[in-house]
Design a binder for these strands. Structure first.
Length: 108
DNA sequence: AGTATGACATAGC
DNA sequence: AGCTATGCCATAC
């Protein structure tokens, strides 16, 4: 019997596809993408997908639940991440985190 | 080849 | 309220 295939054949590709749908000036979270991908537990996989994501994927628009990017966004560092988002008009909080309630996508 | 780890999140205590 | 434990896919050694 076939064990129910609870995973899709192209998880990474699905995640990248969703990440590409993030509009300009908007941000989303790993868990949100994972949920859209079909499984809320793939949040970790989403992070890894970003690690191997092609330049087509605006991985800088993907942040964690706290509204800040991971410590290893890219060899450039978090400073570059903040600069990229600010360049898109993304508001930041005094804590240095992204104002998710203002740019979170899709809007709640 | 199998083990361990990693760009997170949720649930339980 | 904050900390611990678990789940997931893919890559690295």
């Amino acid at each position: 019997m076939e064990q129910h295939k609870r995973k899709q054949p192209h998880t990474f590709e699905a995640i990248w596809q969703l990440a590409r749908q993030i509009p300009f000036g908007r941000v989303t979270t790993y868990g949100r993408l994972a949920r859209l991908a079909g499984d809320p537990r793939l949040s970790r996989v989403v992070g890894y997908a970003m690690h191997g994501a092609p330049p087509d994927v605006p991985c800088h628009r993907v942040v964690n639940r706290q509204g800040e990017l991971s410590d290893a966004f890219s060899p450039l560092g978090k400073a570059t991440h903040r600069a990229l988002l600010e360049a898109e008009g993304v508001p930041f909080l005094p804590d240095g985190r992204v104002d998710l309630k203002a740019v979170l996508w899709p809007r709640p």
